[in-house]
Structure formats: C-alpha cells, structure tokens
C-alpha cells in the first residue's frame, strides 16, 4: 500500500502551543489504520512538489515570523490555490489561517498582506482572546462538537457571507468574539484558531482528513479505531467548558 505524504510547512517557524500534536495524531491514526505516513518538513525557500503530497499542515507562529512566511508562500501561491481548488486536504492554524485572508492589520496600524485566497481580514487588538472553546461543526456531514483552546490577538471578519465557517461557537470567542463564527471551511481545507491541539481530542475531524486523503488515492476506509480515550478527553473538556 502506498505511503501517505504530509507536508509540514515551516515547522521551525510555525509551531506554537503544541500544534505539532496534529501531525502526531494523523500519523499514528494512519498507522493504526494500516498505512505508512511520511512527514516532510518544508522550510523557507525549499522546493515542494505538490503532486507528491497528500496533506498540507501549517501551524501558528508569532507576528515576527508571519511576514517571512508570507513572502515565501507568495511564490507558491498559484500552485497552492490550484491544489486547494482540486480538493487537497489542508489544515491551517491560527497565524497560518490568517495568512489565507486578505491582510492582517497589527495594533500599530502596520498591514501585513495575506494570500487573498478568501475574502476575510484580521485586525489585531490588545486584549487576547484566550480560553477553552467549543464549536459545533458539520464538516463530516454530521453535526459534531469540536473542542480546543484559543489564544489569539487578531479578530477575523468574514466579508463574504458565502464563506462557510469551520464551526459555530457554542462557548468561547471564535473568529472575532461577536458573530459566533469560527474558522473557515472550503472544500477540504480547514482554517481555524483552535489549538489544543485540534485533532487528537476531535477524532471525527482527524478521520475526516484521513478519509479524504485515502479517497483521493482511491482507497475506501472500512476499519474502525477504538476512540474510548479520545472521546473521554473530549467529553471531559466539553463538560468543563459548559459548566464554567
């Protein structure tokens, strides 16, 4: 059986708050499903052949690193957009998510350009939005709860009401603390503020990506994993958030 290839974009620069846990989760689950998985770190300026990749991951970074990443991604933007349009599964967290929009305006007024893949923008504010968060998402076709931890100064506003958010905020802040939207969902791409990390405690979302990866390779997933521990952790946090 073929190997699953994951591109980890800028692991040196973009890895905050345990985001690498998403890749630990995907590669372990793929292994338990019976597939080998190879994670390729991609650094600034390094060649990447998207034809050879089954999944793209980009974690959060601090403001200082955002600009470096933008300049590097800009050179790959055309190819990346084609891949997204063709259904490449991708997970972009926090700073990486913000980069998919039009721009990020920092507190001091400085504007950092984004890739403009989607019509949304982000404005930095002094008070950071920090805390546990719970969403309702429908990416799998069924309504599921998603739990995580958010920690962002930026407020993201979706200009285009046609953009589907990743989820609806049940408790927490989400994109901006006002409109109850969190993240974006487009084809097989999820952009989100959720750390935690996202995938280990939300096995439905992890399996959504795995199913897409395999489907694009013409493989149907019929095996089921035991999610007792993952579900326990999910419910434990959920209970705590809803109670507090």
């Amino acid at each position: 059986m073929g190997e699953i290839k994951i591109a980890h974009m800028y692991p040196d620069l973009m890895n905050l708050y345990g985001d690498r846990g998403n890749l630990i989760c995907l590669s372990q689950r793929l292994k338990w499903y019976g597939f080998n998985c190879k994670i390729t770190p991609v650094s600034l300026g390094e060649d990447l052949d998207f034809n050879d990749i089954d999944f793209i991951f980009m974690g959060g970074g601090s403001d200082r690193e955002q600009d470096l990443i933008y300049r590097d991604l800009w050179k790959r933007a055309d190819r990346l957009w084609i891949e997204i349009e063709e259904g490449m599964p991708m997970l972009a967290i926090c700073g990486a998510y913000q980069l998919l929009g039009k721009y990020y305006q920092a507190l001091d007024g400085k504007i950092m350009q984004g890739l403009s893949f989607f019509d949304f923008y982000t404005e930095g504010e002094e008070k950071r939005l920090i805390g546990n968060i719970i969403l309702e998402a429908e990416v799998t076709g069924e309504k599921v709860t998603v739990v995580g931890f958010e920690n962002h100064g930026g407020r993201t506003y979706l200009n285009d009401s046609a953009i589907e958010p990743f989820g609806k905020v049940i408790k927490g802040y989400g994109n901006n603390g006002y409109d109850k939207t969190e993240g974006i969902f487009y084809k097989n791409l999820i952009g989100t503020y959720l750390h935690g990390p996202l995938l280990p405690k939300n096995p439905d979302i992890a399996d959504f990506f795995i199913k897409v990866i395999l489907m694009r390779k013409g493989i149907k997933l019929d095996k089921k994993l035991d999610n007792t521990i993952e579900n326990f952790a999910h419910e434990q946090v959920k209970k705590m958030i809803l109670a507090g």
Binding site: G21, I24, C25, Q28, P200, K201, D226, T228, I229, E230, F232, A233, H234, E235, Q236, V237, M240
Partner: peptide, 25 residues
C-alpha cells in the same frame, strides 16, 4: 487530575498500548 483525558490521549499517541493506560481522575 482535572485534565486526565488530555494526558491519557497524549500517552496513547506516544505509542503506549491502550490497555496499559488507566484513567482515574
């Protein structure tokens, strides 16, 4: 502890077999 689930998941994904992990909050 309060986040016994989180630490259990972390340990499971480090490759430890599920039967060896015991959750007692």
């Amino acid at each position: 502890g309060k986040r016994s689930g989180d630490i259990a998941v972390r340990i499971k994904y480090s490759g430890v077999s599920e039967n060896t992990i015991l959750i007692k909050t």
